[in-house]
């Protein structure tokens, strides 16, 4: 279950060591924008040492590497891959070629380290007009791609429009990514909400993203994590209904009935699939 993803600056020991207690389902150790060019080496070594030393087993670990048009990305992967991050996030992904380039390089490292093939997944960050146009091809480019992620700050600059709280300027891109990801059967993550002090704003923005079909949302602030988790979790009513659906299915199976109804409504396959998802989320959130 990955509802929330929290960015942690890659060169800050105190934040890195407590990254897993801030409530986020995934933590993104950032070697890119949060690290100045002069400190790329120190952040890379620091993140590698922390991954080597700690399990971070209560959440998923993603490392955002530098983009393929820099001199840093292969060095980033050389240090990080041997210590089994769950996912790598390549930024500024423009095309399926960008994805394959990174994937192949990871593949050679996996082989060299005796790791299971394709054990490190990819979550390409799409934050250019070209990337949005190629969203489906990016999402379906490679077996490693488990999700795609929209980055609206760079994107709005590329689109030459102002980034607003309402987000009208990124609505098309959001919807485009959701459709692309669902067509490619991968997850899809929404851009961070950048006003750290606007509690109501993050709630609205997260609910809107959920309504559009996103799997979850990233954040640059620990303060936004609870609101994101809440927006992307099933409600108590959802959970109750899901259990009713499953009970009705079981009951029908016992009685040998083919057609099942609940509260006078037919339960068809999509309803059952949805109920299963909800119960899975319930287990992940509250324990078995």
């Amino acid at each position: 279950m990955r509802r929330s993803m929290l960015f942690i600056p890659g060169n800050s020991p105190s934040l890195l060591m407590n990254a897993d207690v801030l409530g986020a389902d995934s933590i993104i150790f950032d070697l890119e924008d949060a690290v100045s060019p002069a400190e790329k080496d120190s952040a890379r070594i620091l993140v590698r040492n922390l991954l080597r030393r700690f399990d971070y087993d209560s959440c998923e670990v993603i490392v955002r590497i530098n983009s393929v048009d820099t001199e840093f990305w292969t060095k980033d992967l050389d240090e990080i891959i041997p210590f089994h991050p769950d996912m790598i996030m390549p930024p500024k992904t423009n095309s399926e070629d960008d994805v394959r380039l990174v994937s192949q390089y990871i593949g050679t490292l996996e082989e060299k380290c005796g790791m299971k093939k394709n054990s490190v997944k990819l979550i390409p960050l799409i934050e250019t007009a070209m990337g949005v146009e190629n969203a489906y091809r990016i999402a379906s480019a490679d077996e490693r791609v488990a999700a795609i992620f929209l980055g609206a700050e760079d994107l709005s600059a590329d689109l030459r429009c102002k980034r607003t709280k309402e987000g009208t300027e990124i609505l098309y891109s959001r919807q485009r990514l959701v459709v692309a990801a669902r067509a490619a059967c991968v997850d899809v993550y929404d851009t961070p909400f950048t006003d750290v002090n606007d509690d109501e704003g993050i709630r609205k923005d997260a609910s809107f993203a959920k309504a559009l079909g996103f799997t979850g949302k990233a954040s640059i602030s620990p303060r936004h994590i609870d609101a994101i988790n809440e927006a992307f979790s099933p409600t108590q009513a959802d959970i109750k209904y899901a259990h009713e659906v499953m009970n009705a299915i079981e009951q029908a199976a016992l009685e040998g009935k083919g057609v099942v109804a609940l509260r006078g409504k037919m339960i068809d396959a999509p309803v059952v699939a949805r109920a299963r998802q909800v119960i899975e989320m319930e287990k992940a959130i509250y324990g078995a």
């Binding site: 060591m17 080496d41 120190s42 070594i45 620091l46 590698r48 040492n49 922390l50 080597r52």
Partner: peptide, 23 residues
């Protein structure tokens, strides 16, 4: 008050910067 693995990262970075291969 850095953890050992943090101190080791800083030592390694400094030495790589100070060596021939460094920046």
């Amino acid at each position: 008050g850095a953890l050992d693995c943090v101190i080791q990262a800083r030592v390694e970075t400094a030495i790589k910067r100070a060596s021939e291969a460094g920046v």
